[in-house]
Amino acid sequence: MDFLRFFSGKPSSKEVAKDRLKLILIHDRASISPELLDMMKSDILAVISKYVEIDNGTIDVRLTKEEEIEGGSPALIASIPIRKMKER
């Protein structure tokens, strides 16, 4: 059915549910609570903010599964838009 998805441009509800279940399993395997993930995000942003000005409105920090790593280990993915470098 992936052939039909090519024309619609939208993932099927089956694929969306599958992706959501994968994320839930990854969070469970990593044993990272949402609170801990928020604390990690705050710490990362504090360090990065020392060196660059960041766009706080579009930050995305999440835990995901990195397929290339043997065993499918969880990976922390951070998308932090940088406005400009700070003067030193």
Rank of each mutant, 00 (worst) to 15 (best):
P11M: 08
S42M: 10
E53I: 03
L37A: 06
K50D: 08
G71A: 00
S42H: 11
P34M: 04
D38I: 03
A46H: 13
I32M: 05
K10A: 14
Y51S: 07
G71C: 04
E53S: 04
S8F: 13
V47F: 12
K50M: 13
Y51K: 04
K10F: 11
L25E: 15
F7E: 12
A75R: 03
S8P: 04
E67Y: 11
A46R: 15
D19I: 12
R83V: 07
M40D: 02
L37S: 08
I44V: 14
V47M: 09
I80W: 01
E68Q: 13
K50Y: 10
I54D: 01
K86S: 11
T58C: 02
G71R: 00
L76S: 00
L23H: 11
D55Y: 07
L25Y: 14
A30G: 02
I32C: 04
I80H: 00
S12V: 07
M40K: 07
R5Q: 13
K14W: 14
F7P: 07
I77M: 14
F6T: 15
P81R: 04
R20L: 11
S79T: 13
E66L: 07
S31G: 12
S42Q: 14
T64A: 10
G72D: 03
S13G: 13
K65N: 05
F7N: 11
D28Y: 08
I77C: 11
D19V: 11
S33E: 01
S31Q: 14
Y51P: 05
I24G: 12
S12E: 08
S73G: 14
A46Q: 15
E35D: 11
S33I: 08
I32N: 00
K41F: 05
L4Q: 14
T58F: 02
A75M: 07
L21D: 06
I44C: 11
M85V: 09
D43R: 15
S12Y: 09
G71K: 02
D19P: 06
K14L: 09
P34L: 02
P74N: 06
I54S: 01
S33Y: 05
L76R: 01
L4D: 12
A17N: 15
S49G: 09
D19N: 13
K41C: 09
D2L: 15
L21S: 10
Y51E: 01
E53P: 04
D19A: 14
V16H: 04
I80G: 04
V52A: 03
A75E: 02
M1P: 04
D43A: 13
A17K: 13
S31D: 14
E70D: 06
D55P: 00
G9T: 10
L23M: 13
F6Q: 15
R88V: 12
L63G: 00
R29K: 09
S42T: 09
T64S: 10
L76V: 06
D43L: 14
I24W: 11
K10P: 07
G71F: 03
L21G: 06
K18P: 05
I54H: 01
K18Q: 13
Y51V: 06
E66D: 08
P74E: 02
Y51F: 11
D28F: 09
M40I: 12
P11V: 08
P11C: 12
A75P: 03
D60A: 05
L25H: 12
